[in-house]
Simulated scan of single mutants.
Amino acid sequence: MRSKVYSKLLNKPFCIFIYAFSACLLLSTCKGPGGVRIIKLGHGLGISHPVHEAMEYMATLVHEKSNGEMEIRIYPNQQLGTERELVELLQIGSLGMTKVSSAAMENFAPKIQVLSLPYLFRDDEHRDKVLKGEIGQQLLLEGEKYWLRGLCYYDAGKRSFYTKNKPIENPEDLKGLKMRVMESNTAINMVKAFGGSPTPVSYGELYTALQQGIVDGAENNPPSLFTSKHYEVCKYYSINEHTAVPDMVIISTKVWNLLSDQEKIWLQEAADESADYQYDLWAKSVEESFTEMKKAGVEILYPNTDSFREAVEPIYDAYQTSQPELFSIIEKIRSID
């Protein structure tokens, strides 16, 4: 009986189907059963994070716009690797899409580092004009020469310091503290300018690093601090809002070039609409995060930012002499009304 079952399962059409299906799971994009275009998207955030919710919305839009001819499959929680590993997978075409902080993108497309500079944007309106304008769109495509194409920006809020043992009320309070930063030279230089000791740690490993004292604190936006549960370890949150580093939804150019013109339109429209949706989600999430963290006993402080702004001015001076091309972009951003 068993051999008969096996002989039925191992017929040629069935084997071809299993082979094709298994291969599809290993590819960044493929035509699945019924000719459906499937694109894999991996990221490092939890499923309750507003960025993940926005990407789920994008996947729904792609399905609707294409009448089921195109599908995005999402793998959260670093299932497919850390942020840097995911970007590298895009470069070789082994993964289709990911969400990456523009701070991490500077390691792959150097001009994007300008978006990570502290106190670059005067306010939210200024930031939106930059990102939605010519400069922002040029920076989205800056990674194409490195096999990475930006589709849209997601709001990642404003980043501030949170610590375990003492609050940060001025740059002097950071002296001697090991502060987690992303793998970004701009973030490293910023923390050094404030007097702290920058320590790159993967986001997925940060909770344990805080618990074990590998780092004394970190810097991030309110929803990330809350959804990661880092507030269970860090009870001080100092809202100095030193950066407003956007996230980027990016696609491998190797995958993008495989898409038909119509598929590109479906995907780009879905990404743009999901960005608008994400901005609304983000605003609600920030409010909810503050409420819940206060309930959990987190002390939220609002230090005067003047001393922080003054501390990072030498970073801008250095760009003027060492990287004049990037300094010209900074000047254009600052001149936008």
Rank of each mutant, 00 (worst) to 15 (best):
M1F: 08
R2A: 15
S3T: 10
N11K: 13
C15N: 07
C15I: 14
I18P: 01
I18E: 06
A20M: 13
A23Y: 00
L26Q: 11
L26D: 10
S28G: 15
G34T: 04
V36T: 12
R37L: 12
K40P: 01
K40I: 11
L45Y: 15
I47S: 11
S48W: 05
P50H: 02
V51E: 14
E53C: 07
E56L: 15
A59V: 12
A59S: 12
T60C: 03
L61E: 11
V62E: 10
H63V: 01
K65V: 03
S66R: 11
N67I: 12
G68D: 05
E69G: 14
M70W: 03
E71G: 04
P76C: 05
Q79G: 01
L80N: 04
L80T: 04
T82N: 06
E83W: 00
R84P: 00
E88W: 03
L89C: 10
L89I: 04
L89P: 01
G93H: 05
G96P: 01
T98H: 04
T98S: 02
K99R: 04
S102K: 01
A103P: 00
M105H: 00
E106A: 03
F108E: 00
A109T: 08
V114E: 06
S116K: 01
Y119H: 10
D124F: 02
K129S: 03
V130W: 14
K132S: 15
E144A: 04
K145C: 05
W147G: 01
W147Y: 09
L148T: 01
Y153T: 05
T163D: 07
E169D: 11
P171Y: 05
D173R: 09
G176W: 03
L177M: 09
K178R: 15
K178I: 03
V181M: 04
M182S: 12
S184G: 08
N185I: 07
N185G: 14
M190V: 11
F194H: 04
G195L: 10
P200Q: 06
S202I: 13
Y203M: 09
G204P: 02
L206D: 03
T208S: 06
Q212R: 00
D216Y: 03
D216C: 03
G217E: 08
E219S: 08
N221Q: 11
P223L: 09
S224E: 15
K229F: 02
H230E: 08
Y231K: 02
Y236G: 02
Y236M: 09
S238K: 06
N240Y: 14
E241N: 12
E241S: 10
T243W: 03
I250E: 00
K254S: 09
L258R: 10
L258K: 08
L259G: 12
D261Q: 05
E263K: 07
K264R: 15
Q268I: 11
E269P: 02
A270P: 08
S274W: 15
D280V: 13
A283C: 06
E287R: 07
E292A: 10
E292V: 08
K294W: 12
K294M: 07
K295I: 14
K295V: 12
A296P: 01
V298M: 11
E299T: 14
E299K: 15
Y302V: 15
T305G: 02
R309G: 04
I315T: 09
I315E: 07
Y316L: 09
Y316W: 06
A318M: 12
T321I: 09
S322G: 02
I329G: 00
I329V: 07
I330Y: 00
I333T: 06
S335I: 05
D337P: 07
